[in-house]
Design a binder for these strands. Sequence first.
RNA 1: GGCCCUGUCGUCUAACGGUUUAGGACAUUAGCCCUUCAAGCUAAAAAUACGGGUUCAACUCCCGUCAGGGCCGCCA
Length: 550
Amino acid sequence: MPKENEEDRAYEQKNTALSEKSDNPSELELISPGQIRVRIAPSPTGPMHIGLARVALFNYLFAKKNNGNLILRIEDTDRERSEERWEKEIIQGLSWLQIEWQEGPLRQNGKYGPYYQSKRKEIYKKYIKKLLDEEKIYYCFCSKQDLDAQRQYLMSIGKPPIYSGKCRYLSKKEVEENLSKGKPYVLRLKTQPEKIVFYDKIRGKIEYNTETFGDIVVAKDISTPLYNLACVIDDYEMRISHIIRGEDHIPNTPKQILIARALGIKTPAYLHLPLILGPDKSKLSKRHGAKSVLEYKKEGYLPEAMINFLALLGWNPGTEKEIFSITSLIKEFSVERIQKSGAVFNPRKLDWINGFYIRKKPIEKLTSLCIPYLIKEKLIAIENNKNNGGKIALEQKKYKILETDKIVSFNYIKEAVLLYQERLRKISEISQLIDFFFKKELNYEKDLLRWKDMTDKEIKTILDRLKKILSSIKENQWTEENIKAVLNKSFYEQKFKLKKEAGKGDRGYFLWPLRVALSGKKNSAGPFEISALLGKKETLERIDQAKKKI
RNA sequence: GGCCCUGUCGUCUAACGGUUUAGGACAUUAGCCCUUCAAGCUAAAAAUACGGGUUCAACUCCCGUCAGGGCCGCCA
């Protein structure tokens, strides 16, 4: 064991890219050369998924922890599948999570080009030419059909589906002829049978035999490299010191090492993160209903909850602490404590963490987060005031209750949200929870008013008494404490007693019908607090409404 | 099929050869609180894949088996 560590260290020292000054100056501005530099390299070919968010987070934490830089590189070489909207989504998602990158789109004063692979053709051309000149790669004119057939065959007889090497020894003349005829080609890397050994900082020593992949295709033509080549060139040019990526890239690593060797450049350190798994333990994907990061945002997950949850998927601090702000994550993060095995995405725990953060949120902030959902559900609208031009904060604005045309303050909504702060798991739930504060008529079944064995007549009796007692409270004394005190006093004076028989010492006989009359719901906050916020007039009206149902 | 990675409660994980009747969290169940729900508090149930070795001692090290996953593209 100790022996392997030494070996490990020696290898790392030999292979760290950043230690060396390059003789290939690129057009990139290096913010601070010689430091820890990591990257996230998404391809904008679909919605931003959770896996990317987690890889981004770990890269970010590692960079921050080590005072390094995080680079965002857009891998859009596949022009067919890359779309600008996905790129925007990725940037939005990262920004929402507050994962900041120091170099890349939006960071270089409009100097976007160098961070998009599609804009780096000239750079790639230089490298590919060199490879060609040095005969490290060769033209292959084989047709797709032939290659497919070959692959099928090899797999069927239990052999690795590698290229036969047919075009490897084509004479210069044959190559020229094919090229002049305009015959389609690709460029393949020449490989020798050998063992490639590398050290993954999370997994340790990993060995591959080159015969399991053979002469891989590295470029479509002189200026369009395929993933592995582009990746190696860019990581080198961008002085990436550590590649932190998903476990699914392990098989690419030996190929990239081989490419780097052909190019005569050093390789960075590798860290392969365990995958995030679906409920069936396979790689999390759309087939599990995996949502886009932006959808989580839409549903009302808090970015800090998401970060906390994602960090715990494959990493732990070694203590029993589970709640982490981004700052404490940066402080406590360590590569050594990254897990080796995949982690199943558990939405329940996400909900729990999210609920936890919601409960901790200052109420004004929480209310501001809730308001857009209330607006979307058409419960309220921002009251347009000519003077403010909509530029003022949500806290300063007035809101119109759409059903009643009543104008309420931010404070009113805040009080309503406050009643539900500890019940909320995601912000989007707020509208169905507090909608009754913004409704004229409540829609519920009369039977909901019944507590235990009450008869209709008894319900009516109780509602009558409630109305009478509440009416006696003066408008200026309409507070939660007062309402509570008055109703409880009446209860102990047996004013809600229905019959002489059992069960009538139960406060539910008047509290339940009152609560339902006010909220129209089976589950809600308590009646005292609701009626206090609703106000005397509204409270009495709702009791009347309830009576009409009987 | 080949190669590679991984294997502790249902799930995320702790235990880095002995302090362990394998600890915590989510979820589950029960109780308390209580007008309901939620929150909170208390408690319960729940795991070292299997088989060999090494060792005085193994969840921990080694080997094998099994299981799961990843990759095998002119995608990234």
